[in-house]
Write a protein that binds this DNA or RNA. Sequence first.
DNA 1: AAGCTAGTTGACACCGGTGTCAACTAGCTT
DNA 2: AAGCTAGTTGACACCGGTGTCAACTAGCTT
Lengths: 342, 342
Amino acid sequence: MRAATIIDVAKHAGVSKKTVSRVINNEANVRKETKEKVQASIAALDFKRNPLGMALAKNRSFFIALLSDNPSPGYLMNLQKGILQSCTEQHMGLFLYDCSYRSKGLVPEIEDLVENTLVDGLILAPPICDKIELLEMLDARNIKYIRIGPKDLERGESIGFNGMKSSYDMTNYLLKLNHRDIGFITGHPDQESARRSEKGFRQAFKDAGLEVDESLVVQGYYTYQSGINAANTLLNKEKRPTAIFAANDEMAVGVLYEAQSHNLRIPNDLSICGIDDISITTKVWPNITTMRHPLLSIGYQAASLLIDRLKDKKSTIPAKGPNDATIIDGELVIRDSTSKHK
Amino acid sequence: MRAATIIDVAKHAGVSKKTVSRVINNEANVRKETKEKVQASIAALDFKRNPLGMALAKNRSFFIALLSDNPSPGYLMNLQKGILQSCTEQHMGLFLYDCSYRSKGLVPEIEDLVENTLVDGLILAPPICDKIELLEMLDARNIKYIRIGPKDLERGESIGFNGMKSSYDMTNYLLKLNHRDIGFITGHPDQESARRSEKGFRQAFKDAGLEVDESLVVQGYYTYQSGINAANTLLNKEKRPTAIFAANDEMAVGVLYEAQSHNLRIPNDLSICGIDDISITTKVWPNITTMRHPLLSIGYQAASLLIDRLKDKKSTIPAKGPNDATIIDGELVIRDSTSKHK
DNA sequence: AAGCTAGTTGACACCGGTGTCAACTAGCTT
DNA sequence: AAGCTAGTTGACACCGGTGTCAACTAGCTT
């Protein structure tokens, strides 16, 4: 049994297919009784609009894509969930595309993706959102995008969190617990967020009139393994830190592992904390103290914003000016991996 | 700059658009020099076929959907990754759909999904794959699907792992480590996989000439929290088990948490193991011993199989008969959460 | 050279919708 | 009643491809 088309409905209702189209799209200027007649026919035939036909006619695919290259699966999972939720609500499809930030062929790769799938817009997760060549290509092709947590705010709209404040707040919390020898594991050197969190960490020390022990600041790369490595470095120092603050949870989980391997009791022997609040932080023992970055909500908002922008595609003028970013504050979530230093 | 269409290419090459179409689709019976001329024009104009036009003409969307309702994010993530990989390779799109197995409106919900997105086929993850009403609806609409790890093998093709054997092997491994008081946390009572793993557990005891202590078999639901609850029950017994075997890793992680809350040293005081080999098993301390179920590979194979079947859609006769399942064996991965019982 | 056949090509309709524009209608004003 | 205007409707072309079928062509056989 073939599905009913717009022509079937038109015949059934005794009107033209254009009129049916008007009713479907809820356009004004359709006489009330005509509208009701058509609606009755739609119900009678169980008509559903074919999205492919519409997409072709409207020259829009009703799909958006999420471009990511994030080392923390938990981070991505939450983001994706939020985006998916918004997409489902608004009857848009979501295309996932996992790319490599460092790949030389990234721009042509995405160009291909855009051409082959005809996505209407893109959501760029960090660090992809900071690939300037990519943004230039998208601008040139006039493809709308929303950046999540970008480095600069020069291009397009974006949504992100106040990474510096998160880091500042967490450091303050540790200082308040009387920790002074705090190990800090930085984020990936390529990413601006890494710089922001380090800044927040240093600012908190400064504001407290304290000095950062540079030997306790260790390079990380946002990955689990880099957390392990950094923790190993820190824990083998003659002067071991009493707390380790990792710039994201993925690394904090690595720190926890390494600390337990060193037979340390958490939080008695060592406090550990991270940033993001990914799900694994409440699955490990002990649960990890973190700054909650509401990734699900951010994904949801980013997708909603993008879909909104796609609706009024006639307006080439951006809805708001550049430098146009929504910044969301993190929230301190105290769990069992941190305690007062005696 | 508008993208080149098939008509542009036709004009450029001085042929009809049908001939261009033939070249694109690599059809036989095109004269060699014509083909080359067209290919030159395609290259010159940087032509890319519009997938929407093709989809509409062919009455196929070139999308498949993954239907899931799985409580373990790690399980799903791996499956999804494998499926996505195959889809990307074969130029198919993937639609994710997270539904609720127990929802009353599931069947109409999926019916809507299928109509609104026109997916060509479906991959059904457990436990969705066992929803008979859903399968009947899909059969009636003649929509192809592949089931992953289904209960029965009556309908369509499927791919799964030998859950009974995995459980049997793991139990044997524990027995070989001299464990006798083994706590077993079952899977979700609705899912056949739960029955199979319990069967394997019992068979191993039987084959070893031992008896299962029924008080150590506790109901679980495949979720992290159910693992915690079950572990709590087991660890508070007067006769505490020396090992706990959870029917999936998600629960095993919960067991690990609870055991550590009870101040137990793993594996010295308690051995813990699970099934699946999801990524978190190598992030917690200590890493968890498990049976590797190559979910990524299974996802990949399932998608490839489905896409294959969609290619010869003329053949309504199934490529192979019913009862047609690929069964993959798990592999014991020994890590740090299990040790010999003294 | 005529006849045949397999190979090659294009005209046309179609997939299922939407946009444009002209024509028609209803209800008002004069 | 004629004229006007805003509201309503449908014919037609189009989005970018593919399927069907008939016509044409090249190269062979007789």
